[in-house]
């Protein structure tokens, strides 16, 4: 490699490293305890812009069995297979209480941090092509879904 190429390569490194912070996670015990206070809540950006929080949201969406009603075969309920275009704080409210109180006890049963993560996940899903979302769903097939466990990834 000539000198100019090496310099160009070195100049690229900061841009590559910038990608690493998108998954940064804090292993501290400062989980949110409350719902978003509004569109300007600083936690919204912390969850929606962080890939680790988004992917955790996907796991809890699967584990809590949300796909039973909101998956590809959503019957009556909103099909969320490709996400939702609502804002994160609106999604939080929808998960915690549901339309016309359909989720009336979810806010009491699901800890606030998991609702934050699922809201960020649904918000993020809508930004991708359906093919990528189907791929994500395939990767999560080994995970338990609600009260079902179909065995490990085969």
């Amino acid at each position: 490699m000539n000198a100019r190429g090496a310099i160009a390569g070195l100049a690229l490194i900061p841009f590559l490293l910038a990608g690493c912070s998108r998954e940064a996670r804090q292993l501290a015990s400062d989980q949110p305890q409350t719902a978003p206070s509004g569109p300007a809540d600083p936690r919204t950006a912390r969850y929606a812009a962080n890939f680790y929080q988004v992917s955790q949201g996907g796991r809890y969406f699967t584990w809590y069995g949300c796909g039973d009603c909101h998956g590809r075969l959503a019957r009556g309920a909103a099909n969320l297979a490709n996400g939702s275009r609502h804002a994160v704080e609106a999604l939080y409210t929808a998960i915690a209480a549901g339309q016309s109180g359909a989720h009336s006890d979810y806010a009491a049963r699901v800890p606030a941090e998991q609702i934050w993560q699922m809201a960020a996940y649904l918000h993020d899903l809508s930004r991708h092509e359906p093919a990528r979302n189907r791929r994500n769903a395939l990767d999560q097939q080994g995970e338990p879904q609600g009260n079902r466990w179909q065995g490990p990834l085969q």
Binding site: W63, Y64, R109, V110, E143, P144, G146, N147
Partner: peptide
């Protein structure tokens, strides 16, 4: 059975049926 535990944990013979 009625709180968060039962969403992810199973206690056979009770209403807690989560499998995660």
């Amino acid at each position: 059975t009625g709180g968060a535990c039962g969403l992810c944990h199973v206690v056979r013979g009770s209403a807690a049926t989560g499998r995660a």
